[in-house]
Amino acid sequence: MEWRVIRLETRNAYSNMAVDNAIMEGIRAGSSAPTIRFYRWMPSAVSIGRFQSMNDEVNVEKCRELNISYVRRITGGGAVYHDSDGEITYSVIAPEREFPKNIIESYKLICGWVISGLAELGIEAEFAPINDITVNGKKISGNAQARSDSVLLQHGTVLYSTNIKRMFSVLKVSNEKISDKMIKSAEERVTRVVDHAGTTQEGLYEALLKGFTEGKEYQFDSLNGNETERARELEKSVYSSDSWNFSR
């Protein structure tokens, strides 16, 4: 199987989700190649899991104040803060038959590519089921997978230099207001690439690229015309709409 690799690109939250969805549809229709994609979010954004409530998980008012977008993902899992300069997101989209049927085993396989990438930077990370990657017990990467009509989509984020204080100003982790105690507690649970390796965000991307492509046949390419057009439609009709983002 030959993979298409889409180099690190930057889009807004709605477009990022629409592109993953459009590729998924293209693979289902047989018109798109299995894809590994790397991306950033501009402006910064919060994404919530498929089954979460936007109002319960996200401080929407604060997001508006800080020009932070908010979007519902097609994948399950929890709320994630995507700092424009502070993380890299990947997606892997391919026919389901290419992966283990067992969900956890398939997470483990794809998370292994992230772990290989981090190893390039000298960071020893491990898979923490169900869907996390940790370094010394602290979370450095969260991952989420959807399967629909024989197509698998897994996307995940690797924390590079995420602003933890800003992260917890937009995520409703508890009913309490942000306190030093809470931020300290979050810091105890979360870690970032900059805490372990002296590299740039570009350096992290290059390392992840190596981890994801090692041993695979692949070529760099961009979206095809159908995907671009479909992504524009989905961005407008679904991912930027309140009916989708506030559906739960």
Binding site: G49, R50, F51, Q52, S53, D56, I74, T75, G76, G77, G78, A79, I103, I130, N131, A144, Q145, A146, R147, S148, D149, R248
Partner: peptide
């Protein structure tokens, strides 16, 4: 009934 959370359901329409 509305069920919410950070769990996973495959396929997602199953929820």
């Amino acid at each position: 009934v509305q069920l919410l959370g950070d769990f996973f359901v495959y396929p997602d329409s199953g929820l």
